[in-house]
């Protein structure tokens, strides 16, 4: 089902990301931050979808580890890569905003630190897959499950340690002209996410088929 929806998702995503800049352009300026605040329309949706992706990765890893479903493993790889990709977007757009709003590129603030840690946990997951050798798919699954359960601990510990970032409570308080483009961007990022996930899973499936064919050929050659 995921695969069949690819053309539709492709059209939706391209359309959404073509319209988004106009909506963001037309949105009113935030009174104190002005133009730099507009990065928020990409920054926050990327962050939200990153969290979602972390949970997709953790849950599919658990299904793979306990049920041994190869399909779940493919979703886990795709979601781990996308978590890192979205995390990179978040960690790149954040400092751009911070430089203007706070005067520094980076602050050891709660949300920044926890996003960085989330990004690190899933990067670790990819590193294991890449350099762990045979059997590393299970190791990566364990890291993803631990990473998922670690999210609340990271959140609480880092929050008590430091807080500076604008609170999540700003979202419902967004001005009338700002709310619509914001939700639109969330949907745009969601559609991009599902599209990339579907494509990445398909790639993994094709790799698996290719490997199986090679093995078959080897068997036939040696027989």
């Amino acid at each position: 089902m995921l695969q069949r929806s690819v053309p539709l998702l492709l059209v939706t995503t391209i359309a959404a990301f073509s319209v988004a800049p106009f909506l963001i352009h037309n949105a009113p300026y935030e009174s104190t931050m002005g133009l730099v605040q507009k990065i928020f329309y990409f920054h926050a949706p990327a962050g939200i979808v990153m969290f979602l992706s972390a949970f997709v990765c953790g849950i599919s890893s658990a299904i793979f580890l306990f049920r041994g479903r190869q399909g779940a493993d493919r979703v886990a790889v795709a979601a781990a890569e996308l978590t890192v990709l979205l995390g990179t977007i978040v960690l790149a757009t954040g400092p751009l905003w911070a430089r203007k709003a706070w005067g520094v590129w980076w602050q050891w603030d709660a949300r920044l630190t926890s996003s960085l840690l989330l990004w690190m946990m899933f990067t670790a997951c990819l590193l294991v897959r890449r350099y762990g050798g045979p059997g590393s798919d299970k190791l990566a699954a364990a890291v993803a499950i631990f990473g998922m359960f670690n999210v609340p601990f990271v959140y609480v510990s880092v929050n008590v340690w430091r807080t500076l970032h604008p609170k999540t409570t700003v979202v419902p308080m967004l001005g009338p002209g700002m709310r619509e483009p914001f939700w639109f961007c969330i949907l745009a990022f969601l559609s991009l996410y599902v599209l990339l996930l579907a494509l990445r899973v398909r790639l993994a499936e094709q790799q698996a088929t290719l490997d199986a064919r090679y093995l078959e050929l080897d068997d036939r050659a040696s027989a």
């Binding site: 840690l117 690190m120 946990m121 670790a124 590193l127 294991v128 350099y131 762990g132 050798g133 045979p134 059997g135 590393s136 299970k138 190791l139 364990a142 890291v143 631990f146 990473g147 670690n150 601990f153 990271v154 609480v156 510990s157 880092v158 340690w161």
Partner: peptide
């Protein structure tokens, strides 16, 4: 789980530190 993995000496801290950061902070 890393016992049988390649480059386990490097991977152990790479995996362990990001996950145990709450412990270090606390």
């Amino acid at each position: 789980m890393l016992v049988r993995a390649r480059s386990r000496d490097v991977l152990l801290p790479v995996l362990l530190y990001p996950i145990t950061i709450p412990v270090i902070i606390a």
